[in-house]
Computed example of a mutant assay.
Amino acid sequence: MNISGNTIFIPGSTSGIGLALALALHARGNTVIVGGRRAELLDRIAAEHPGIDTVQVDTTDAASIDSAAKQVLAKHPELNVLVTMAGIMRVEDWHRPESILASAEAVVTTNVLGPIRLIAAFVEHLQAQPDATIVTVSSGLAFTPLKVSPTYNASKAAIHMLSESIRLQLADTTVKVVELEPPAVRTSLLPGQENSDFAMPLDEFVAEVVTLMESQPDAKEIQVERVKFLRYGEARGDYDQVVAMVNASDPHGK
């Protein structure tokens, strides 16, 4: 995608990677619409960052997604980029599945059904634009499993294959499909992760992502250097060693 001149909707971006990316893209000359569940956070973002628009959306709720899509497209008919940012991560112990089932289902609803519903809500509009992009967000853990988060790993692997497949189907349209693959980043995705020495500083991650978007406008996957250890273990032939190292590094494998 081009790095400037876009109109971009980023649901799930009131904090963490989503908000940092929204601010960085706004600074590069894009119109940015931030989406999130909590009205007070959206109001604060709008007040602190003039020029950024906001819309309330719960990406776990199909009706909320449909309503938000109508609002965004009515106000921003030139919208040409969708970033499906919303996601959650939960620690699970599958020795006792009864204790984690509800949490695992919530991960699937947020991380898999959310992006599917968002893409479905916008894809027809995007196909009518002269140049459009869908940015999905998977994870390095789509390619190397972290033992404490089985459903999260699976959800991000699903996003990877969804991205690959939709890209093939939309190859005859103006819509590009780009997969963003973060490593562990210092956010509140898991308790304590924002202070983890194993996680990449948020500002460094977003700066590298924006640089990659600018230097590789036709990239299918946005991979900072730090995620390639996870992404290509199988291709390098050291997958088992990578899995062992990731799961021995600390209690959360970060």
Rank of each mutant, 00 (worst) to 15 (best):
167 R>A: 15
50 P>N: 13
58 D>F: 01
181 E>R: 10
176 K>C: 04
140 G>A: 00
105 E>N: 06
49 H>M: 13
89 M>T: 13
86 A>L: 10
128 A>E: 09
46 A>F: 13
127 Q>G: 14
94 W>A: 02
76 H>A: 12
141 L>G: 13
137 V>M: 06
119 I>G: 02
73 L>S: 05
145 P>E: 08
140 G>I: 03
72 V>W: 01
46 A>V: 14
80 N>A: 00
121 A>V: 03
144 T>Q: 11
96 R>S: 03
44 R>N: 09
79 L>A: 04
56 Q>R: 10
59 T>P: 01
160 H>Y: 07
99 S>Y: 00
101 L>V: 04
181 E>W: 06
175 V>T: 07
140 G>N: 02
178 V>W: 06
136 T>C: 13
112 V>E: 04
87 G>Y: 07
91 V>Y: 09
81 V>D: 03
157 A>Q: 10
76 H>P: 13
91 V>W: 07
156 K>A: 00
56 Q>V: 06
118 L>R: 10
112 V>I: 15
63 A>N: 10
168 L>R: 11
84 T>S: 02
82 L>Y: 02
61 D>N: 11
57 V>S: 06
85 M>A: 11
174 T>S: 07
161 M>D: 08
77 P>V: 14
162 L>V: 09
66 D>T: 13
125 H>M: 11
128 A>R: 15
80 N>E: 01
158 A>T: 04
112 V>C: 09
176 K>M: 07
69 A>H: 02
133 T>M: 00
126 L>K: 08
129 Q>C: 00
65 I>Y: 06
92 E>A: 09
88 I>P: 07
102 A>T: 15
173 T>M: 04
98 E>C: 04
60 T>V: 13
140 G>S: 09
159 I>Q: 08
157 A>R: 07
49 H>A: 12
114 G>K: 04
144 T>G: 13
93 D>N: 12
94 W>F: 06
141 L>T: 12
130 P>R: 01
81 V>T: 03
101 L>C: 06
148 V>Q: 15
172 D>N: 15
104 A>P: 00
57 V>R: 03
144 T>H: 10
167 R>C: 04
143 F>K: 09
120 A>I: 12
149 S>I: 13
114 G>C: 07
179 E>M: 05
71 Q>S: 15
72 V>D: 03
97 P>S: 02
85 M>Q: 14
74 A>C: 12
92 E>S: 04
59 T>M: 14
103 S>E: 14
181 E>M: 15
94 W>C: 01
64 S>F: 04
107 V>K: 15
69 A>K: 03
